[in-house]
């Protein structure tokens, strides 16, 4: 029983990180109809930018961690806006294939830049432990403090994102824009502002995912965005592109599949990705709009 609980906790950790990346995919697709394939690398960038703040952490600990978190998130949010202006907005009226290629290539550039220019960038980089270590047990179930922090941050960010999108006027603008671009502009919504806010928000979430990844696994490497990107995209697709709750559900579902296969199928670790992606393909076949997705006819 505690084994199941423990594995559930493992899956929740994974799912939290996946979902944070997945939300970005969903947001970008929902508002701009683009699949931003360098989004995983943006997440990686968040972790590496956080590393620049490491000297501060060793000096001030808690305050330093907060500065690192906020600093990296803000920088990545700005970079996200910059990237959208560079590879996504100019191609808005071009065939979607162009955007797809441009974002794929942007991801490659980000990855290679870290590999080549970050000192020792080819190797894993040690990531600081920013949450208190240790933990406690309840009935055989061991819960680590860092897991609690990750979960708390994740849930807080999910709730904040949903509130921003559903309750603020900015969020209303994003939703209106995603439902009818032109009509929203006729109501006074600024297109460039919506795009900037969307990319800032999505990229900030990805940066949070990257930092949580770093501190959870205690290391980061320039290729980490590849996996998180593909999984984030898959999770957003399973959940229904365009839906924030869908992306969250998709992220956790993906993590649960992976973890259950690793944990409960003998020798399963080897096949966990095959099975998880296999399930994704089944979803695409039988429910192409995802778990919480809109009907296909409403899009397009």
């Amino acid at each position: 029983m505690d084994m199941i609980g423990q594995q559930l906790m493992n899956a929740v950790m994974l799912g939290t990180m996946y979902s944070l990346v997945a939300i970005g995919f969903s947001l970008f697709f929902g508002t701009m109809n683009v699949i931003h394939f360098s989004h995983g690398d943006i997440s990686m960038l968040g972790a590496f930018i956080a590393l620049f703040f490491v000297p501060i952490i060793t000096q001030y600990s808690v305050l330093g961690s907060v500065i690192m978190f906020i600093g990296a998130i803000v920088i990545v949010a700005v970079l996200g806006i910059f990237l959208s202006g560079l590879v996504i907005q100019p191609l808005q009226s071009s065939p979607q294939l162009y955007t797809l290629l441009a974002t794929l290539e942007a991801g490659l550039v980000i990855r290679e830049a870290i590999r080549l220019f970050y000192p020792g960038g080819k190797m894993s980089q040690k990531f600081p432990i920013i949450f208190p270590s240790g933990g406690f047990s309840i009935g055989g179930l061991t819960i680590r403090f860092d897991q609690l922090f990750i979960l708390a941050i994740g849930v807080a960010v999910f709730v904040a994102t949903v509130l921003i999108v559903n309750k603020t006027s900015l969020g209303m603008a994003i939703r209106a824009y995603s439902q009818d671009k032109e009509a929203s502009m006729m109501m006074g919504v600024s297109e460039s502002k919506v795009i900037a806010v969307t990319f800032a928000l999505g990229s900030a979430l990805a940066a949070i995912a990257g930092i949580l990844h770093g501190t959870y696994y205690r290391e980061v490497i320039y290729t980490m965005g590849l996996t998180s990107g593909i999984i984030g995209f898959s999770a957003a697709t399973i959940g229904g592109l365009g839906s924030i709750w869908g992306a969250i559900v998709g992220g956790y579902l993906f993590a649960f599949i992976q973890t259950s296969v690793s944990a409960f199928v003998p020798g399963g670790s080897e096949y966990r990705d095959v099975i998880a992606f296999g399930v994704m393909i089944l979803f695409l076949l039988f429910r192409p709009t995802g778990i919480l997705g809109e009907r296909q006819s409403e899009r397009v």
Binding site: G188, S190, E191
Partner: peptide, 21 residues
């Protein structure tokens, strides 16, 4: 831009309703 034109005091009832469904 469209949103700037609207901001000057021009209201628009577009063709085909264009509601936020």
């Amino acid at each position: 831009k469209t949103h700037q034109i609207h901001a000057l005091g021009i209201g628009i009832v577009p063709e085909g309703k264009r509601l936020f469904e």
